[in-house]
Nucleic acid binder design. Sequence first.
DNA 1: CCTTTTATAGTCGTCATGACCATAAAGGGG
DNA 2: CCCCTTTATGGTCATGACGACTATAAAAGG
Lengths: 239, 239
Amino acid sequence: MDGYDKYAFEPFAVTVDLAVFTIRDGALHVLLVERGQEPYAGRWALPGGFVQPEESAETAARRELAEETGLKDVSGLHLEQLRTYSEPGRDPRMRVVSVAFTALLPDAPEAHGGSDAAKARWTPYDAARNLAFDHDRILADAHERIGAKLEYTCLATRFCPPEFTLGELQQVYETVWGTTLDRPNFRRKVLATPGFVEAVPGGARLTGGRGKPAALYRAGPATTLHPPLLRPTSEGRPA
Amino acid sequence: MDGYDKYAFEPFAVTVDLAVFTIRDGALHVLLVERGQEPYAGRWALPGGFVQPEESAETAARRELAEETGLKDVSGLHLEQLRTYSEPGRDPRMRVVSVAFTALLPDAPEAHGGSDAAKARWTPYDAARNLAFDHDRILADAHERIGAKLEYTCLATRFCPPEFTLGELQQVYETVWGTTLDRPNFRRKVLATPGFVEAVPGGARLTGGRGKPAALYRAGPATTLHPPLLRPTSEGRPA
DNA sequence: CCTTTTATAGTCGTCATGACCATAAAGGGG
DNA sequence: CCCCTTTATGGTCATGACGACTATAAAAGG
C-alpha cells in the first residue's frame, strides 16, 4: 500500500453478491433474481448490487438483503463474508470485483422481491444451476461454507424459528448436508453441548404432529461447538 | 448485479494486503515493510499493492509476495484469501478496498526486500503492533485463521522445510498456538493420520541434535485432518 | 561414567460417538 | 375400541480418540 503516487491504479467497480439460504418444505432453497438485461438477460443470478461511496461491503450486503427479501428487520440475521471474486473476465462489460456474503433465514418470507428487485424467487438449491456470471461457483462455495460451519458452530439455529423442536434442528443438518442422522445420537449431542439450545419453560407442541408431541427449544448463548458435530463419512472433504 | 445503467457507482481502488508468516528461532514472525510516505510515514505495514487491470487479486497477491520476499519461485507456497476490508475510512486519502491474503513460508529467506520494496523485515508476531491503516486487525484475523486451520488441515507442513522431524512439526503448532503439547501424544496423532507425513526412506538426523537422533519425514498427500487436532483448552474460541 | 537431552514406545482411564434397542405418546383406520 | 403407524425420548454397548503419565533408547557433554 506504499507509494500511491508512483503506481498507476485502475478504478474498479465493487459489488456485493448474496447467497441467501433458507429451508422450505424440507429442502434447501436459495434466493435468486431474474436478470432483465444483457449480459445474461433472462438468466437467474444471486441478488446483489454496488457498494455505495459511504458504506462498507457489510453495510451494502445488509442493505441489499433487506431490499431483496422485503424484510423489515434484517439486523438479527446471520450475514457472513464468504470471499471476494476478482477474476478479470467475470463481467464482460467492465472490471467488477465482488465481495460475496452468505445469509441464513429462519423461514422464507412469502412476499419477497420487496422494493425494486424485479423478480426474486426462492429456488431449490439443487435446481439453482446455470446462473449468470460466476454465480454457480459463488453459490457452491457458499454451500460448502455453511455445511462446514454447521460442524463447529451453533449456526443451525439461525435456520429455525425462535422456538423449534429438536427434530426441526436435525432437519437443518440433514438438509444442508444431504445426509440422514441418527435421531437419538443427534439429540444426545445437542443436549450435551452447553448453551446450544435451551428448553422453553412449559411447552410441548401438540396440534400439528402425527406422533408424540416434541418439546420446544430456543437458541442458546453458545456460538461454537466443542467438540464439533462432524458430518458422517466426511473423509476426503475439501479444506 | 442487475441494472448497471440505472445505478451510479463509485470507482474504488482495489489493493491486496499480505500477512506472510514464518517461524524463525522458534518464534512466529511476520513480514512487514516500513512506509516511506504519508500517511503513516515511518510506520510498519503489511506488504501489498494495487491490483493491476489484467490480474485477479490472487495473481496480484502472488506477484507482491514474490516482489517482497525476493524468492524466485513462489508457486508452491501456500497463499490463501483471508477476507476483504472495505470500511470507508480505512485509508484517509481515498476509498480503498483491500483483499487480504495469508501466506506461509517454510523458513525465512535471509535476503528479503527483493526488488523495489523499500525496507522489508521479519518481525516477531508479538512485536508487530501499531501498524498502519487497519493492519493490526488484518494481522490478528490472519493469525486466528492459521491457528484454526492447523486444527483441521495439514497446513503445518507448509511451515517446514522439505524434510523435517516430528519435533519441528510440533514446534510449528506450539509456536502458532502459543501452547505446549505433549510429545508422545502429538506423535501418536500425527502418525495415526494417513497421508499427513511420510517417513523418508533411510534417514535419521544425527549431527545437530543434542539427544537421540530423530527420524525425518516429509509432507504427505493429505490436506485435511479427520478427526481434527484441537487446541488444548480451546473452550470459548471465536467462530 | 554419569547426567542431560531428545526421541520413541507403551499404558490406562475417560469421554465422545456410532449402532442399536426400548419405551412413551400422539393420530388414523379397521 | 383396539391396533398400527409415527414421532419423541430414554437407554445400552462397544469402539475409538485422547489426555496424563511412565518407561526405554540413543545421542552429547562434563
